[in-house]
Design a protein around this nucleic acid. Structure first.
Length: 110
DNA sequence: TGAGTGACTGTAA
DNA sequence: CTTACAGCCACTC
């Protein structure tokens, strides 16, 4: 059984698109929801390649830090988040615990 | 072919 | 609190 990375990346985008407006999640949470918690680094890589219809700006690291900010150029990532009602300060999401969205949570409701 | 790097995370000291 | 290390794997040189 060969691991299908393309399918994995497709799933990553699918989950990312499910993130509600005004919420954020972490790379690890996405990886866990796909039962690939160890391939968390591939999630980050996938975000780098993410198409425009994927809200990659809603994906931050487990500390709520906007680690991918530099890839958006300038403060676009922060601007996008703030325009969605989130509070961002010093490249970090305020009330992170509060706005955090776990993909597994949505899967349970399904 | 092999070493280095990275939008990461969990565990340990 | 900080620092270090291991695990994972695509990509670049």
């Amino acid at each position: 059984m060969t691991f299908n990375k393309e399918q994995f990346i497709i799933d990553i985008y699918a989950v990312t698109r499910l993130i509600p407006v005004g919420r954020v999640t972490s790379y690890g949470a996405i990886a866990r929801s796909l039962e690939q918690s160890r391939r968390v680094r591939m999630v980050g890589w996938a975000m780098n390649q993410s198409p425009e219809d994927v809200p990659a700006h809603r994906v931050v690291n487990r500390n709520g830090l906007l680690t991918g900010r530099q890839f958006f150029g300038g403060t676009r990532m922060q601007d996008l988040l703030q325009s969605e009602g989130l509070e961002v300060e010093k490249n970090k999401v305020k009330n992170f615990k509060k706005v955090f969205w776990d993909p597994l949570e949505d899967m349970e409701v399904e």
